[in-house]
Amino acid sequence: MHEILDLLQNNSRLTAAQIAVLTGRKEQEVKTMIEKLEADKTIIKYFTLINWEKAGVEKVSALIEVKMAPQRDVGFDAVAERIYRFPEVKTVHLMSGAYDLAVLVEEVTMKEVAMFVATKLATIENVLSTATHFVLKTYKQNGFILEDKESNKRLVVTP
């Protein structure tokens, strides 16, 4: 099962038939397994990794560190929810260490980030402070090196 997940994580366009060949299983068996994984939300969503810069989209991403005061019974969850519901927020992690939430906003303009932090994020009660770091360049994302300069030039025929 993990092998199927690995394959799909790497290439979500693989069909059940292809996965069946690669893993030595029956197509129907793979189909059933994927359906189950989708149904129980082990597989949450299929998406595409895009190099937006290459597509000519000049938008920015920022990592915002958020410190907050935990609340009785719900800890950080309630505040986190108020933050992650914003559509420009793409990823939110609760962190150990110097701050509490790592909030990643992506594909927005610089001004939108500023507005978001000043008028939305910082004003939420129990948010104690924020620190915004803009992404200057992305080298690697989701395990993929965006501009891989490495080339493995093998001879075309070797013994």
């Binding site: 093998r154 001879l155 075309v156 025929v157 070797t158």
Partner: peptide
């Protein structure tokens, strides 16, 4: 015997080689 093939295949464009006896991984 492999050598002759090597020369032939090297000169062509767009060849997919299944003639390589080494890993494709770095």
């Amino acid at each position: 015997g492999i050598r002759r093939f090597f020369d032939l295949a090297t000169e062509m464009e767009g060849v997919i080689s299944l003639g390589v006896g080494e890993p494709d991984f770095v």
